[in-house]
Amino acid sequence: MNILFIERLTVMAYIGIYDWEKKYLQKLIFDLQLSYNTAVFLGETSIVSYLDYTHVSQTILDLVSKKHFYLIEDVANLIVNTLVKKFCVCWISVKVSKPGAIRDASNVGIYIERKVNIS
């Protein structure tokens, strides 16, 4: 299995349920791993035949920077569902961190892992 990973992709986003959170950009950090069916690409030499980390990163930046989210769970689910559909990945893990969200903790977040049956 080949796994493409992206670590510590940082995005400033409007996220939170409290009124003050809706007014200020907050840092979200993404750690992702994506696996794809490499058999599809055997013998291919074109760059469009591979999972491109710049396209994956840009997709996340575009999705997260365009709207307000109430929960990091909402962000994580949107990212997972979009990447699975757009890039035909067969396995994905996404960790979304919101550092500084709790005064006495350095970080909080959510981790989602999904295996996708692609026919």
Rank of each mutant, 00 (worst) to 15 (best):
Y50K: 13
D31L: 00
T59N: 14
E44Q: 15
V64R: 01
E44D: 14
Y50Q: 15
T45K: 11
Y53A: 15
F69N: 11
T38C: 02
Y53P: 13
S57K: 10
D74H: 11
S35I: 01
I47R: 13
V48G: 15
L83V: 10
L78A: 08
L34A: 05
L34Q: 03
T54D: 14
V56W: 07
V89Y: 08
V64P: 01
Y36E: 03
G43C: 02
D52C: 15
T45Q: 13
F41Y: 03
T82W: 00
Y70Q: 12
K85S: 15
V75C: 04
T45L: 12
S35P: 00
L42Y: 05
V40T: 07
Y36F: 09
T82G: 09
T54I: 12
F87G: 11
L51S: 14
A76T: 06
H68S: 13
K67G: 08
Q58V: 04
I92N: 09
T45M: 10
I29R: 02
N77C: 02
T59P: 08
I92H: 05
V64Q: 02
S57W: 04
T54P: 03
F69H: 11
H68P: 08
L83R: 05
S49L: 08
Y36Q: 04
Y50S: 15
S65T: 07
F87P: 08
T54S: 15
Y36R: 00
V48K: 15
Q33Y: 00
H55F: 11
F30V: 03
S49R: 06
Y36C: 08
Q33W: 01
V80K: 07
V48P: 08
K67R: 13
I29N: 03
F87C: 14
Y50H: 13
S65V: 00
D31A: 01
C88W: 02
L83A: 12
L42G: 04
F87S: 13
V40S: 07
L61V: 11
T82A: 10
Q26P: 05
Q33K: 06
V48W: 07
L63D: 06
N77R: 07
L83F: 03
T45E: 14
D52F: 07
L83W: 02
D62A: 10
S35V: 00
Q58C: 07
W91D: 15
Y70A: 12
L61C: 12
S49G: 14
D74A: 14
V56P: 09
H68G: 10
L71P: 05
D74Y: 02
E73Y: 02
S46E: 15
S35F: 00
V89S: 12
N77S: 12
F41H: 06
D62M: 09
I29M: 06
T59W: 06
L42R: 06
N81K: 05
